[in-house]
Simulated scan of single mutants.
Amino acid sequence: AGLNEFDRVLGGGIVPGSLFLVGGDPGIGKSTLLLQVADLISRRHGKVLYVSGEESAHQTRLRAERLGKLAPELYLLAETNLTAVAHWLAEMKPVFVIIDSIQTMYNPELPTAPGSVGQVRECTGQLLRMAKNGHTAIAIVGHVTKEGNIAGPRMLEHMVDAVLYFEGDRHYSFRILRAVKNRFGSTNESGIFAMEETGLAEVLNPSAMFLAERSAGVAGSVVVACMEGTRSLLVELQALVTPTCFGMPRRMAAGVDSNRLNLLLAVLEKKVGLQLQSQDTYINVAGGLKVDEPAVDLAIILAAASSFRNAPTAPDMVVMGEVGLAGEVRAIIRVEQRIQEAVKLGFRRFVVPRGGTKELGAKFPDVEIIPVASVVEAMDTVLGG
């Protein structure tokens, strides 16, 4: 398609004759992303048809003008009748088609309303046949429910070749595109974009963006190297531990699993001896990013202990490691890749699990590798006991 982050998620690009689904919260930027992709494809490969069922032709053109995406081979059709859409596909023979959105399309032969289970299933089936028979790639936009799932029948995700989720917090500028299903590539990739006035811009160095406003020497702040697909990201994990005003202490987490936080605080109390029963604990991943891998366990524990003791960690230190219920620090995957990313940004001290770190010292002679086997050992190393 020519948009590197988008191509990365799809495994190298869009396969001709494929049908893929793009879902995301309202206003997150799904239509903007696909309009930019349509513009690039039309300039490189030929005719592209953008079918808008939610906006008028005038409204869609205004958005394209604002983004500067008015290519000669990019055509717009404001239509919700799938029979009319099929007619224009056969007439124009475009290389790429965007249906925005599948919940607005209807087959006039069915008595049900647009967006119903039967309509969504039938319209998707017809689009699938059009894509395979006409060797035309088709992208369909799908609405999501409050639970974050694609609205409509569950079968919808099984019918398409790829399912992409466009995620992000509308209070922040960055967006993440993830593949949860891909018949033509890996589902471990992710693309990172920043929402700007002229549309979505690719973020070439996301770690630097997430750490741009970090304050050094602040208690409760720890930098952790996590994996987003096959890409290593450095993010700041913040903790605030303060005496509670209630009978039951509060535990709140933004960006990490709250159940995981409760588990790790229990490890701190049992294995380290920190008295947190009367302390409110708040954990936040700066920038609004959501991190769900076990490698952030050690960072959560050290950030909470740092805030509790009011003892800041070293500003050039990166922490990574999974923590077990016995207080042990377990090995994680791709430690070398995480360190390489951190070295680029000037970090020189790395607290890592002891298992599988024998060769890291030889590979990174200019940095300090600190292997730890337990939470107690990590506390002694990072916070002085």
Results as ranks from 00 to 15, higher is better:
212 A>I: 07
190 S>N: 14
183 R>D: 03
192 I>Y: 00
212 A>M: 06
199 G>M: 02
184 F>E: 01
189 E>L: 10
200 L>N: 01
206 P>R: 09
214 R>A: 04
211 L>S: 13
197 E>H: 12
196 E>D: 10
191 G>K: 14
195 M>W: 01
197 E>I: 06
205 N>Y: 05
206 P>Q: 07
200 L>K: 05
181 K>M: 12
190 S>E: 13
204 L>F: 05
201 A>K: 15
179 A>F: 10
184 F>W: 13
214 R>E: 01
193 F>Q: 04
211 L>C: 11
198 T>F: 13
191 G>E: 11
209 M>E: 02
211 L>Y: 07
190 S>P: 13
209 M>I: 10
204 L>E: 14
188 N>H: 15
197 E>A: 13
184 F>Y: 15
211 L>E: 12
182 N>A: 03
195 M>D: 06
212 A>G: 00
197 E>D: 14
201 A>S: 10
199 G>Q: 00
189 E>S: 09
189 E>H: 10
195 M>A: 10
209 M>K: 10
205 N>A: 08
189 E>R: 08
179 A>T: 10
205 N>D: 09
198 T>G: 12
192 I>N: 05
208 A>Y: 00
205 N>W: 03
207 S>E: 08
204 L>M: 09
181 K>P: 05
189 E>T: 06
198 T>Q: 15
208 A>T: 08
198 T>L: 14
185 G>C: 03
182 N>L: 06
211 L>Q: 12
199 G>F: 00
202 E>A: 03
182 N>W: 02
182 N>E: 12
210 F>V: 04
189 E>I: 09
210 F>D: 06
190 S>G: 15
202 E>K: 01
206 P>T: 05
180 V>E: 03
207 S>V: 07
212 A>N: 05
201 A>F: 03
192 I>W: 00
179 A>P: 13
185 G>M: 04
196 E>K: 14
188 N>A: 15
192 I>K: 09
208 A>D: 07
195 M>V: 02
196 E>N: 12
182 N>S: 02
211 L>K: 12
200 L>V: 04
213 E>N: 14
181 K>T: 08
186 S>N: 05
203 V>N: 00
214 R>I: 01
211 L>P: 08
189 E>Y: 06
199 G>A: 02
184 F>Q: 06
189 E>W: 11
186 S>W: 13
191 G>M: 14
206 P>G: 08
196 E>G: 13
211 L>H: 10
202 E>P: 03
191 G>R: 14
193 F>I: 04
205 N>K: 09
197 E>F: 07
196 E>L: 11
180 V>R: 07
191 G>S: 12
208 A>S: 13
184 F>N: 08
184 F>K: 11
207 S>G: 13
190 S>A: 15
182 N>M: 05
182 N>K: 03
201 A>D: 10
184 F>R: 06
196 E>M: 07
191 G>Y: 14
202 E>D: 03
187 T>P: 08
189 E>V: 05
194 A>S: 09
199 G>H: 00
214 R>S: 01
180 V>K: 10
183 R>P: 08
213 E>V: 01
180 V>N: 01
204 L>C: 03
